[in-house]
Computed example of a mutant assay.
Amino acid sequence: MLARLIHALRTLGIWAIALLLLFEEWGWEHLAALLAWIGRLPGLRWVEGRIRSLPPYRALMLFAVPVLALLPLKLLALYWLGQGHVLLGLAVIVAAKVGGTALTARLFMLTQPTLMKLAWFARLFTRWMAWKTRMLDALRQSPAWQAATRWAHTLRQRLKAWRKVWAHRITGGAPTDRQ
């Protein structure tokens, strides 16, 4: 009985970590791209240039900014949760997570070349990436992932067919650009 419980908790933990890694992986790329686009604004280009030129340990300290900047928001969200404003509290927590991920991703992209000059950082980063790759590979090979992938593919195909039917109805049978 105890062995089953431990196995179930371990499996749940692995899935939780894997889903977090997937969010970070997806969010990292898309959100960093969004911030890179925003970073092309004239004033922000200067800021990004300054960040790129930081020495390694100052660049490392820069990662405290998102944590410290979002801490008051997260505390406010916990307060609202405690006051019974569940949706508001959860929305603020999700927004803080997305915003923090975006800012951290952009900061890392700007400072990675500098940070990799630190031997211990480069070693840890290499290990982290290898571990993350193994975790994501295991997740993608799991029956649950395979089933979810098939379901998502089917859903996309149905939505595509549905859009085609509705576009045909709206245009009165006239050909559309999407056909």
Rank of each mutant, 00 (worst) to 15 (best):
L103V: 14
L60H: 04
W145I: 03
R156S: 11
Q112D: 09
Y79K: 12
S142M: 01
L107W: 07
R10T: 12
A33D: 08
A148E: 11
R58Y: 11
L19W: 08
W128V: 05
L87K: 03
A130Y: 03
R140V: 05
T114V: 15
M109K: 11
R140C: 04
T104E: 14
M129A: 12
G82H: 10
K74G: 07
M1E: 13
G43M: 07
L124F: 14
M135F: 11
I93T: 00
R123I: 10
L136R: 01
L41N: 07
L107Y: 05
A105L: 02
L12A: 15
L115P: 00
G99W: 01
T133V: 08
G84S: 10
L76C: 04
S142T: 05
E25G: 00
G173N: 05
L103T: 08
T133S: 12
R140K: 13
R156W: 10
W46S: 11
R150A: 14
L22G: 07
G27Q: 06
E24G: 09
A148T: 10
T101N: 06
L88A: 13
L62A: 14
D177V: 11
M129F: 07
A77G: 02
Q141W: 11
L70N: 08
G89C: 05
L159M: 15
E29I: 01
A64W: 07
R10Q: 10
L5G: 08
S53G: 09
A3S: 13
R45N: 05
E48F: 13
I51P: 00
I17N: 10
P66S: 06
E24H: 09
